[in-house]
Design a protein around this nucleic acid. Sequence first.
DNA 1: GTCGTACTACGATGGTTATCGTACGACCAC
DNA 2: GTGGTCGTACGATAACCATCGTAGTACGAC
Lengths: 117, 117
Amino acid sequence: MTRQSATASRELEHPARDAVRLEHVLHALSDPVRLSVVRRLADGPPEQACSSFDLPVSKSTCTHHFRVLRESGVINQVYRGTAKMNALRDTDLDVLFPGLLTAVLAAARAQDGREAG
Amino acid sequence: MTRQSATASRELEHPARDAVRLEHVLHALSDPVRLSVVRRLADGPPEQACSSFDLPVSKSTCTHHFRVLRESGVINQVYRGTAKMNALRDTDLDVLFPGLLTAVLAAARAQDGREAG
DNA sequence: GTCGTACTACGATGGTTATCGTACGACCAC
DNA sequence: GTGGTCGTACGATAACCATCGTAGTACGAC
């Protein structure tokens, strides 16, 4: 019956490194919710479950934002039991666009600092 | 009659440096047409007229894109006779988000190089 | 004044996006 | 098996965005 394991059937599509486009990455990062996700991935553990983010949006919107990040090549997602783990594709991004992610993260931090005073 | 010169009355609104938001800048740069404008401003003379860009869109769309760039704080626009001159706000951006513009421009060049092979 | 160039304002349109709620599927623990 | 948690799929909606064409203003040259 070509019955593969349920987990294996839940593989997620990711763009290959060379297929990642700068415009898509910038667009993905231009949304506050998504940028906050990327910042938490950069600052915290390398793999974090969707549910651990506590975003100010509904679950379905959450799913949407994580998909945008994945399809733009910013994050990698894998299923781990019931959880879906997210990891920054920082090495891929750094090969493609050296220094870009670092600069964006630093910019976000700088802006935060300015707002906090 | 408090009649100022017509040119002076055509002042354009720009966000103050501290009002520039990272999300808006990233969004402005995430459009291919706008990114190409920014690249030409970075590579060419510091002030360039809208008409000198020869973009693959209509004049009204052109106006729209330049406005997005201005309102996000990426470029400065001034009238100079009938022409509207555009300049990158690179020093402002570099104060706010050090290295960001450089990284984006380098990324755009890298992507171009990859496509050209 | 007229004419041409540069650009804008307005209105429309079609496509994309962010958002949600509900219903469902996959997994783990029991 | 049951139940709970985590996330998805679907459908809907409202907002946004890129695009255009037309009509118009501002300026410089004549």
